[in-house]
Nucleic acid binder design. Structure first.
Lengths: 356, 356
DNA sequence: CTGAAAGCGCTTACAG
DNA sequence: CTGAAAGCGCTTACAG
């Protein structure tokens, strides 16, 4: 494992009979090099098996060619929530085109998070992507103070008033939630509950508010909202609370698939038939959701696409192109079998025209 | 987002009235510095808000302070298999102690994988961890030829004959599989099937072979083995094939939780009761498995611990301590409710003493 | 205990 | 089109 006497650009230059500058230029193409010398340079490099030292190049160019991603989620969520792996896959696809890499940090405390951003800012990465945005997210100020280029992934279009000051890639979760509520109402449900994600997150809040608004639009009671934390155990607990009510809901809209699956299992363990007695929907379109019994109606979020788009936006910002907010909306409802009419659907008449 | 005129070690030195070398030494402690000048240095640094440039330090020390991890799995598996997130969390915990970071690459082809390792070797990382080892894994030769320090995570103790030439952190999957088979046999099962992971992986192979051996030890037919690929859809398909047999198994040992959950769901959708008519077991102890109905008997693999141990082994190797193979065995069976006696368990008498 | 200087291995104006 | 040289911002022998 001993470093085998590294060959440097100087060796290649000498071998090819040119200056180091010329070797550099032959590869970068930033200035014309005659075909003949280019050939000699490449031949020498190949023979000596030279590749430019990333460390030296980073110092000379003030660029590291790596992007940072710090995730501050419960390890259990990271381990099962399909969003992160898909999002990272999307990032990778565009990073690979540029010969760049992704630096991943999983942190479990605010202090650790702060330390990580400071470390990243000291020349470890060229920029970062901010995930899981919270209201008045402290990271907005932090990255700007650290001089760390960043783009933020958001669940709704940035409004003129609230300014993160950072280019934002946003999607629109509300359409999908509205559609889910439509599906449920069309099937005859009126007592619909929502198991939200953590409400400190913007996306958790947006989905909750959209749910509430959609229910109100239809003249339905929107008070059946409980907050989960995206883990299976929270899906189980919140569902138990909901089913324990005097008038339990006939349908539950979960903010992610894991909570939905755990909720569904809990219902079943109590002898509640899904979907005959309880309809459920998820969010994320995890691979598993298609292979459940019943298969889970859920929302595909285009996590891969959003990773790619966010990364492209960040690279554009680094190239000092004027940073713009960009819409990345690949959110779509995936209808499967976890919705049915409620037990006594006939007792309720849906006012015509209230839903489409 | 304009770089705010970076302050360098030179600024700090001037401000503190010392040389750049002294500033460096005051922080590294590699040579004694008088308390008084140390104080001046720290004060100056704090006032100027200086932190050493990672890029410059990397070039000067020939160290990047980052470790590479390249995963070559199906995106669907990465998105739901809890192993990776947990393993990465374990890595992070020891990297954080050292102010280091993890460079993650997800690749989808052999060519991309090769390109990535070459890029990593050009001074992007100090070393790599090799996951998902295959038989005669080509990466053993590759990293050595690239001069890239590496440690490999393996599912069994390296035997004297087969030499990867690399320090290995190994666990022993066989005990857990043996225990699972015991559980099933004790419950009265004789027709037990195994849905294996991809057999090109050592760990897939080890579990399969252990299963076969355990069955043979008990005088049972060990031919009911089918190969899955760790995805839910493969869990579904393999289970369908198993249940379609003339004599379907009464129990299925899956190589991971996702396949088990999908298999369980398929069985249920066919009206097969779990566990009354079909016992199933998983592998991984994903958070979800505890919250299923029935909860899944599975195997906790200590992925977090293994990540930490592998990372420590790599750092030790980098510190040129003599690299040793180390056992990281935190594998333990988690008994839950997905095992029951087979439908007509009474028809079979278990020979005394064959199992404990 | 401290300073001056070389060196890490590239890139990039500056001349020609 | 090409070369010589400075510079990126640290660390580390080498002297003292």
């Amino acid at each position: 494992m001993a470093e085998p006497h590294k060959v440097t650009i100087g060796d290649v230059a000498r071998h090819a009979g040119v200056s180091k500058g010329t070797v550099s230029l032959a590869y970068s193409g930033k200035r014309p090099v005659s075909p003949e010398t280019r050939r000699r340079v490449f031949a020498a490099a190949e023979q000596l098996k030279w590749t430019a030292s990333h460390r030296a190049r980073a110092l000379a160019t003030s660029r590291t060619g790596t992007i940072g991603l710090v995730v501050a989620r419960d390890p259990d969520v990271l381990a099962t929530d399909p969003f992160f792996a898909k999002f990272i896959g999307g990032c990778e696809s565009v990073l690979a085109e540029h010969g760049m890499g992704l630096m991943l940090h999983a942190v479990t405390s605010k202090e650790a998070e702060l330390a990580v951003y400071e470390r990243l800012a000291s020349g470890r990465v060229d920029g970062v992507i901010l995930l899981d945005v919270e209201v008045d997210d402290h990271r907005f100020a932090l990255v700007q103070q650290l001089g760390l280029p960043a783009v933020v992934l958001s669940a709704h279009r940035p409004e003129p008033g609230e300014t993160s000051g950072l280019p934002t890639v946003y999607s629109d979760d509300s359409a999908a939630i509205g559609e889910i509520v439509d599906l449920l109402v069309d099937a005859g449900h009126t007592r619909i509950a929502h198991v939200a994600g953590p409400l400190r997150y913007i996306h958790g809040r947006v989905r909750r508010e959209t749910f509430t608004a959609a229910m109100h639009d239809r003249g339905l009671d929107a008070s059946l909202v409980v907050e989960g934390d995206f883990t299976a155990s929270s899906g189980r607990d919140t569902t138990a609370r909901l089913l324990d009510r005097d008038e339990p809901p006939t349908a539950i809209v979960y903010a992610n698939d894991m909570m939905a699956i755990a909720g569904l299992s809990l219902a079943r363990s109590r002898g509640v038939l899904v979907p005959e007695e309880l309809s459920v929907t998820g969010y994320d379109d995890s691979e598993l959701s298609a292979h459940l019994s019943p298969p889970l109606t859920t929302v595909a979020t285009g996590a891969v696409e959003r990773g790619a788009i966010a990364m492209r936006a960040l690279l554009a910002a680094l190239a000092s192109e004027v940073p713009e907010d960009v819409l990345a909306d690949h959110t779509t409802v995936v209808r499967r079998g976890s919705i049915a009419a409620p037990p006594r659907a006939t007792t309720r008449t849906v006012p015509t025209g209230v839903h489409r």
